[in-house]
């Protein structure tokens, strides 16, 4: 994002909407710090009164920052809009998360801190060592050099984004060791990350992640998401058994 200085009147509206505090008002003009700006365009969407904000022509890997940080963006390589995939939202149709499996999402940089891909790589590597299957359509997955190690391409590592979701599928019986690695990761990163788990509901109404979480004494937020199974055609989960 760039500011047309000749038009800017220094009103500060853009700074108010910048989630990364990348915009400051100096000498009655808005200045953007390119190291902090993640190309989310929240400032542009909220409307500059004198039309002094403009998008820049971006090149790789800055285009990745845009697609991960701007919710209206579509990733140029994967064709996926936003930061991740539909994960559990369409599970009754896609069968993505089957029996004995747990979907895990580590949303790096969320909330409100942003993240470099150096920290994203640490998260990928923490999951990879447990044999995680990374979601192939997630933009983080295809910038990995190797999905068995979780290493990220060198040119992407320094990139700073609003957030990036490391999205994977693991065997339910490995969840405890995976979460222990996440606890270790927690001490190694310079950012925050939000941890989410997803699962099919079993016949008794419990999820495949319940046991490990209870055993580890971890607490879950009281809120959550429930797919109510209305999508069609339905995936046949029993054929996997």
């Amino acid at each position: 994002m760039r500011i047309r200085e000749e038009s800017c009147v220094g009103c500060g509206k853009c700074a108010k909407f910048c989630p990364m505090k990348a915009i400051k008002i100096e000498d009655h003009k808005a200045k953007v710090d390119p190291l902090k700006c993640v190309e989310c365009y929240n400032c542009i969407r909220e409307g500059c009164p004198v039309n002094a904000l403009a998008k820049e022509e971006l090149s790789w890997p800055r285009t990745l920052a845009e697609s991960l940080s701007c919710p209206t963006g579509v990733d140029e390589k994967s064709g996926v809009s936003g930061r991740g995939t539909a994960e559990m939202k369409t599970n009754e149709v896609t069968g993505r998360i089957g029996h004995q499996k747990v979907g895990i999402c580590l949303e790096m940089g969320r909330p409100f801190t942003g993240t470099t891909f150096i920290d994203v790589e640490k998260a990928c590597m923490a999951l990879a060592k447990h044999g995680a299957y990374f979601e192939p359509l997630n933009p983080v997955t295809y910038v990995m050099k190797d999905t068995t190690t979780g290493e990220i391409q060198e040119d992407v590592r320094p990139l700073f984004v609003l957030s990036a979701i490391v999205e994977a599928l693991i065997d339910a019986d490995k969840l405890e060791e995976v979460l222990k690695s996440c606890q270790k990761l927690s001490k190694e990163v310079d950012t925050v990350f939000s941890v989410g788990v997803s699962s099919l509901l079993k016949e008794d109404g419990t999820a495949y992640f319940d046991e490990a979480i209870e055993k580890m004494g971890l607490s879950m937020y009281a809120g959550g998401k429930t797919n109510v199974g209305l999508g069609r055609p339905l995936y046949d989960f029993d054929k996997e058994r």
């Binding site: 599970n91 979460l179 997803s198 879950m220």
Partner: peptide
């Protein structure tokens, strides 16, 4: 939401839960 599903006659299929925010939480507002 469990009650909502019951009242609406819907069978819950897949669920997602949050384990909260981990990492350098001192950075949070």
């Amino acid at each position: 939401t469990k009650e909502c599903c019951q009242e609406a006659g819907l069978q819950r299929h897949t669920v997602a839960r949050s384990l909260g925010v981990w990492g350098n939480v001192e950075k949070l507002p």
